[in-house]
Amino acid sequence: MRSLKTLNLDAAKGFLFGSRSSYGLIFSLLLYLLLIAIGFVYLYPLLFMLVTSLKSPSDLLNPMVQWVPTELYTGNYEKAYLVLDYPNTLVSSILISVVPSLIQAIVCSLVGYGLARYRFWGKNLLFMLILATFIIPAQNTVIPQMLTYKQFGLLGSSLSLILPALVGQGYKSAIFILIFYQTFLSLPKVLEEAARLDGASDLKIFTSIALPSAAPAFIVSIIFSIVWYWNETYLTIIFLEGGVQTLPMQLAKFTQAYENMYPPGVVNIFDRLNEAIKLSGTFLNILPLLLMYFVLQKWFVESIERTGITGE
């Protein structure tokens, strides 16, 4: 018979070192410690940016002030707001990312459906080409595109990003085609056959059966597409410069824009460009995405499970 003492010891052991059913205190503590440490390192650039952007010019020069500014100084944000031309660039950034994303999602759902539900010759070739569009770097195709756009007077217009999306060649479209392919592949064929017996046409089956079932894939595709279009600067700088101005484009030439507004030789020392103003601009740049992320975070972090893109 086991004495009460050994039982207690077992329980204590289990509590500290873990048992079959739980990890135990020591393991849990280690796990949390490790995750918090890694999480801190991971978020360090963001914390650094946030803290620095709130520092007043005198705090910046004071080596004693590292992590806690002496006052909450918003002057950097006021300047960055003006330099970024925030309201205008924000609206064009939203337009430039949302419109191609919606179009891209619709077109990719069509292509994904075609690949998942129909047998036809050349399907493997098509898959290889779709993969190729994912691999080919943008600079291998961008110059002729740019020259053609120039010829048609489309440079600087949002059409230069919308047109490729309209024919399934939008930014990272291969991933979205794959998401829709996986989604439609898992749709039971029975539904489709039943609808066909009722005399529904292929298009009708697509719009009334396939599309509603693909709602999660649409949400995931659209939000990822928005994020990627928002952050894309290689193509936007080439295609849009001189016309539509997005937030990241404006951030990329922040120094130049700042010096146009506050000429270095003219303004007093406190109005010179410093890292706090630059980082305020950076923070204003990612703020809309951060808000979107925290509102929709479930859709982001569960996206891959929901769309089953890893399905083999």
Binding site: G114, T141, I143, P144
Partner: peptide, 30 residues
Amino acid sequence: EALYGYGFVFIWVIGFAVFTLAPLAQTFYY
């Protein structure tokens, strides 16, 4: 079935030819 399949992916094939293949070939020519 194949015809309908092509119908769904047709738009991508056009796009690939116009926005990827042609510029790629042109870049190589350049």
